[in-house]
């Protein structure tokens, strides 16, 4: 565009200094993003390198080496995020369908804003709410689960009296990722070709049959990627875990006991302010592990979206 056409006979645009400066500053800004990401990788690796090879036995739980230290944390991260997604995904699809296909059209947009309000609440406020409101209120339900479903490994053992368990964390995380998944699903459901929907209705389908035959098949890749993006958010969420859980470095599937695996992010937030020496390096190294996990999850999500763009015949 900027006067690179040199073939004879074509008129070349005049190159103005202001044009050049503007182009260079635009490209510099783009380049700065690449540099920043490279810097993230370089500095994180540089600061965490000592922990990978060094002695981290000074950390909480006296781990033999770094990988022993990070394993229960990584488990807790994935486990709590998975649980959150388990609650959030069906609800989000329901809410998105309600807004896109069930609610009266005049109020639908307003309802969307209401759900978006949930996304605006800072995570530290969710943490306070989880401790003060949700955890005490949910103990009777845990008691009930423990009494009648205690034979399942998930609800076995002693119920934690404070209600501050991994299941409570997962519920708060679910509330936090619902708006993200909902808004993405809503966009996708609204993109369903109107002709598909009308064709289904014209053939006598009920509203649910129309949704099952036209909307959901069209939106499936979108739902999957929305779920993955929500999962990525839940993996990195820090404050709720740090505030709610009194962590134990264990790998445990029990949902209602006082022995809960912490997550990488929560562990960093709890220990970083007082950490010194190799502990700082070890915590940064766990952060690097978290970064890799979220990167993998998000990449899969992007890949699904890209594949859909390539094969979608709807446009």
């Amino acid at each position: 565009m900027t006067a690179t056409a040199t073939e004879p006979g074509r008129i070349r645009a005049k190159v103005r200094p202001a044009d050049r400066t503007f182009f260079i500053s635009a490209i510099a800004a783009g380049g700065l993003i690449l540099v920043a990401l490279a810097a993230v990788a370089v500095f994180l690796i540089a600061e965490s390198a000592p922990a990978f090879v060094g002695d981290v036995s000074a950390m909480n739980g006296d781990p033999a080496n770094f990988w022993v230290y990070v394993a229960p944390l990584a488990f807790g991260t994935v486990w709590s995020a998975f649980l959150a997604l388990l609650f959030a995904l069906p609800l989000s699809i329901g809410i998105a369908l309600f807004i896109s296909h069930y609610a009266p059209r005049r109020v639908a947009q307003g309802l969307g804003y209401v759900i978006d309000l949930l996304a605006a609440v800072p995570s530290v406020v969710f943490g306070l709410w989880g401790i003060k409101v949700l955890a005490p209120a949910i103990v009777p339900i845990y008691d009930w689960l423990n009494q009648y479903l205690g034979w399942l490994p998930f609800f076995a053992g002693q119920v934690d009296r404070t209600g501050r368990t991994i299941l409570t964390v997962a519920i708060v995380l679910a509330v936090m990722i619902i708006p993200i998944i909902t808004s993405l699903c809503r966009e996708i459901f609204l993109q369903t070709p109107k002709l598909h929907e009308e064709a289904a209705l014209a053939l006598g389908a009920t509203r649910w049959e129309m949704i099952r035959m036209a909307v959901l098949p069209f939106g499936r890749p979108g739902i999957i990627s929305a779920a993955m993006l929500g999962l990525g958010r839940a993996l990195g969420e820090t404050m709720v875990v740090a505030m709610l859980l009194s962590p134990a470095l264990v790998i445990s599937f029990v949902l209602t006991s006082g022995q809960n695996p912490s997550t990488i992010a929560g562990n960093i937030a709890l220990n970083f302010p007082e950490a010194h020496g190799i502990a700082v390096n070890a915590l940064i190294a766990t952060g690097l592990v978290l970064f890799v996990i979220t990167l993998v999850v998000n990449s899969v999500a992007r890949w699904v979206i890209a594949r859909r763009a390539a094969f979608s015949g709807a446009n």
């Binding site: 993230v40 993006l229 992010a265 940064i284 990167l295 992007r302």
Partner: peptide, 18 residues
């Protein structure tokens, strides 16, 4: 896109490390 997915605590760790 990659940046969108950076967990906020990792951003804090990066700034600290730098």
């Amino acid at each position: 896109d990659v940046m969108t997915g950076i967990p906020s605590i990792v951003a804090g760790l990066f700034a600290f490390a730098m």
